[in-house]
Design a protein around this nucleic acid. Structure first.
Lengths: 339, 339
DNA sequence: TACCTTTGCTTAATCGTTTAAACAAAGATA
DNA sequence: TATCTTTGTTTAAACGATTAAGCAAAGGTA
């Protein structure tokens, strides 16, 4: 904030010889202010290059019109697209967003929440870090009485609005696609079971396998942190099995890429020898060779719906309306790695 | 902001039967408040779960402790790392950041600036959109008297602090590396000349070629928007030359990837037939086959230095100190595509 | 004893905007 | 003419924290 150029409503009032209150009302199109005054006020405001002091109005109204957003990492196509469409909706409604990154760290997530609450945001939209198990910091948000909306990485126990995709069903799509291609031993490199979305993918995988009368082999279900390197490790491990899988469904694209690298290095023909499917539809999946089949998570819809859910909450804060749980169906994009 | 849990310094004052002013001072460790009172105040603050109202203090002090950040897209490894290290430094100094994306659009950039000024940020740190030519919106920031720091995508005409890498010199590194490998016809798929950093890379390329007594062939210098698709197009075009290049230096990794795809599809041996170097060191450059040589832009240093430059500016706002232009030397990372 | 300093607090104004309440003037109603 | 409504404005009190100025009590100095 600067010392110069600090035109206030008082300055406008002085020019027109009316009260500051009248100016404020004129600028907000109050019905009790005459058209003549409104026009004059707006003209002077323009001339003096008036910019309302957001802090003052936020303080007075008890609303900052700021929404805090917490994502594990902006450096991912999914999250950056979600944020983009979220921003569009919220900006239109007069809200601005503050983006913070947790870097998948529980500690950083706590700090982010403190920061956002300190900044007096009107609400928080978050996707949880992998590390997060303890939820007390999220309870803190709830206890402040401001809306909390989760997307993608949510948690049932928290009992708050949630927008995400149907992970359970996505696993069915993938497994059935692979079976249709003739695969009989489908492995799953999944995320940690304690993270709900990954647990859902694992459950979906198991149920889909059973539903299609294939045997469940526990060796073929491996938990991973889904980084590229861990994808490599887990894939390498599987190649040592005496009974190799003929397909691998990896719950994250980076880990899928790691797996693909190992397969390529071992001269294994993808898709003919082993088929591969990733998750998340990161841009690189269509850039490498072979291109990797993956699941599109509809980031734009998720962003838009999350924002709309937030707006709904702030517009009727008292109403203890039923929880919004919006679950979208994801879309399997078949590419060369499983054709 | 909520109606409940709104503990204020007045509440603390009431409990202890002292004035609100004393509470404020105690919380700020004012030397004129006794240790006994300070301890008591802090204890009560903790008990009542007191959180200072940032808006009120910002209004009063004329400082929001918010820094606005504008980047073309958070969805890039470079920008997301810059932001991360910037945030670390700024948080330590008591500042929080508001991240906005311009999506390379001039119009969106203008809107972002309006939003940030409206939010009363104490300063703006920006990297310009590709589209931006007109600079009046940046002048607006300067005229408000708040610090403006540019990084990576800057502009000399604006006359503000800048942190970036030595693009001119980076081109020398690349060209000389390729010449050392025996290349004689080195092409350059560059960005638009009107963007300073790309212009510098082109100038560096030309001067390095000349310096090494190789001929300049204008056909080998091609402007591009550096998207993956355009990289493909420009590479395909070059393959039709009767006199093909034996190396291609692409000013962006995504376009370099596009070029590589075309080379692979045409069964051209990279690096033996044509060597390839990209720019930006995006993670995928080391993920694909062959891995792509690229330039590391020291995102962490850039973020840190940008933040430090900002802090320097806000701490001595009056001093019309000389402009900070920090230019780091980039680092060429040689990978398979040019080995 | 008389005066000066230091310590530890209080009072009151302030940041710029919003808004409930008051009020004057004009117009409508009976 | 007397009373009620409507219109268009002003007054003044907030929002919560900060801070210059003031002041009383305690301690120090000569």
């Amino acid at each position: 904030m600067s010392k110069k150029n600090k035109t206030t409503i008082k300055d406008i009032a002085n020019v027109l010889n009316i009260s500051a209150a009248a100016v404020s009302k004129a600028l907000h199109n109050d019905s009790r202010i005459s058209e003549k005054t409104k026009k004059a006020v707006k003209q002077v405001a323009k001339n003096l290059n008036y910019q309302p002091n957001h802090l003052a109005s936020a303080l007075r109204r008890g609303k900052s019109n700021l929404v805090g957003v917490i994502v594990p990492k902006t450096n991912s196509n999914f999250f950056s697209s979600v944020i983009e469409s979220m921003e569009t909706v919220l900006n239109k409604a007069g809200y601005n967003i503050i983006i913070t990154q947790s870097n998948e760290s529980f500690e950083k997530e706590c700090k982010n929440i403190d920061t956002l609450l300190f900044t007096q945001v009107d609400g928080i939209i978050a996707s949880m870090a992998n590390e997060t198990v303890d939820l007390s910091h999220y309870e803190k948000i709830k206890s402040k009485g401001i809306p909390l909306i989760l997307f993608d990485r949510g948690e049932n126990d928290l009992n708050v609005d949630y927008v995400g995709i149907n992970d359970y069903h996505s696993s069915h799509l993938i497994v059935e696609h692979l079976i249709a291609k003739g695969c009989k031993r489908i492995a799953h490199i999944g995320g940690y079971r304690r993270t709900r979305i990954f647990n859902n993918r694992i459950r979906g995988y198991i149920d889909a396998i059973k539903k299609n009368n294939l045997p469940i082999d526990d060796n073929l279900i491996i938990e991973s942190d889904l980084t590229l390197n861990d994808g490599r490790k887990k894939m390498a491990k599987m190649l040592n099995f005496e009974n190799r899988p003929d397909a691998v469904y990896v719950a994250g694209d980076y880990a899928a890429l790691g797996a693909l690298q190992v397969l390529n290095e071992n001269n294994i023909d993808v898709p003919n020898e082993i088929r591969l499917v990733g998750f998340g539809n990161e841009p690189f999946t269509s850039l490498i060779s072979p291109t990797i089949s993956s699941v599109n998570q509809h980031s734009n819809d998720i962003g838009r719906l999350t924002a709309e859910t937030f707006l709904e909450r702030v517009s009727n804060p008292e109403i203890k309306q039923t929880l919004n749980k919006i679950i979208l169906d994801a879309e399997l994009i078949v590419r060369d790695s499983s054709k």
